[in-house]
């Protein structure tokens, strides 16, 4: 007959968790958990600590008694000098082997650019040669750039994210003067932003979707849309922005965009490298739905850039989304 469990607290895993956290002791019963107090020290204590520290350092790096430290220092200095000289030498050697500037036989003047210009439209289907280059011939490079943006956001997130538990306990009272410098309460800004933000979004979408037909593309259009998002959150506050753009939205948008880019371009590379027939039609050049994958990839890049711009802003402004 199994043992009855009146509440979830009787589960072994939970009691183990409690024991690990230290809130329950098998001999003493429930323990009251207190948040750790901040360490306060007077000036004398601080000076004493600094003196201790200096004394410890002096003993540790006493070169007369400790010959190992002395040897290490000498070796370190000599090695660093040798490394720097070696680097300078390698770089100078490379520069001296570079071909002279403006020589028509330089390796930069090869048949690649010729081919881009002559057959770019036929092979990629993009009227804008630059987009054809960065999203078709060199799509792998652009994929790396998009990933760099994503990794940069993640790094900033790691560095700047607020610890919510700590925040709630310690910094509940905010600076009352802070609101004074916020432009959120400004009527002129609100009125203008109401008119401008939709226009900015539409223009950003136009630049993204028109990337293969004219100047523009994912990077520039994404920057425009990110600026629109930032303007919106400056004007109306983060509460209104969070109704449609939260950390979850950022996560999924970036994930979907990068995955779609990766998968679709992997298919394109696979068929291209093996000489297979690709099912993606190039369409008629000049139409909005043309140029095969470039249209999709532009949207992906635009999504990633928009998310990155807004994420950076939100992170530096308030430490979270």
């Amino acid at each position: 007959m199994s043992k009855l469990r009146p509440s979830h607290k009787d589960k072994r895993a939970i009691s183990f968790q409690e024991w690990m956290d230290g809130s329950v002791d098998p001999y003493l019963g429930n323990l009251e958990m207190k948040p750790q107090e901040l360490k306060q020290e007077t000036r004398e204590q601080f000076e004493e600590r600094m003196q201790d520290y200096a004394r410890m350092n002096a003993q540790l790096y006493d070169t007369e008694k400790n010959t190992g430290v002395k040897l290490f220092r000498v070796v370190f200095q000599i090695t660093s000098v040798i490394w720097v000289l070696l680097l300078i030498g390698i770089l100078l050697l490379t520069v001296s082997h570079l071909p002279p500037n403006g020589n028509p036989d330089n390796p930069a003047n090869n048949e690649v650019s010729q081919r881009y210009i002559e057959r770019g439209l036929q092979e990629t289907g993009a009227v804008n040669i630059v987009t054809g280059m960065i999203l078709d011939y060199r799509a792998f490079d652009t994929f790396g750039e998009s990933n760099v943006l994503f990794v940069a956001t993640i790094t900033v997130l790691i560095l700047l994210r607020k610890n919510k538990k700590m925040h709630n306990e310690l910094d509940m009272k905010e600076d009352p003067d802070e609101e004074k410098y916020e432009p959120e309460s400004d009527n002129i800004l609100k009125t203008v932003a109401k008119v401008l933000v939709p226009v900015i979004f539409v223009f950003g979408l136009y630049v993204i979707l028109n990337g293969h037909l004219g100047p523009g593309g994912g990077f520039s259009g994404g920057a425009i849309m990110g600026a629109g998002l930032i303007l919106y959150s400056i004007t109306f506050g983060f509460e209104k922005t969070e109704r449609f753009f939260t950390e979850k939205t950022y996560k999924w948008l970036s994930f979907i965009a990068l995955t779609v880019y990766c998968v679709s371009k992997a298919y394109s590379f696979y068929t291209g490298a093996n000489g297979l027939h690709s099912i993606i039609p190039l369409g008629t050049p000049g139409a909005i739905l043309s140029s095969g994958l470039i249209f999709v990839l532009n949207i992906c890049v635009g999504m990633v850039v928009t998310c990155t711009m807004y994420a950076f802003y939100a992170m530096f402004r308030k430490g979270e989304f």
């Binding site: 432009p183 400004d186 002129i188 203008v192 008119v195």
Partner: peptide, 23 residues
Amino acid sequence: LVVVFLFFSSPVSSHLIMNLEVE
């Protein structure tokens, strides 16, 4: 459109900078 956009946005930014300066 660039002209129209700057015609809207530039006075607002000036206004905000001025506000911040005065305060």
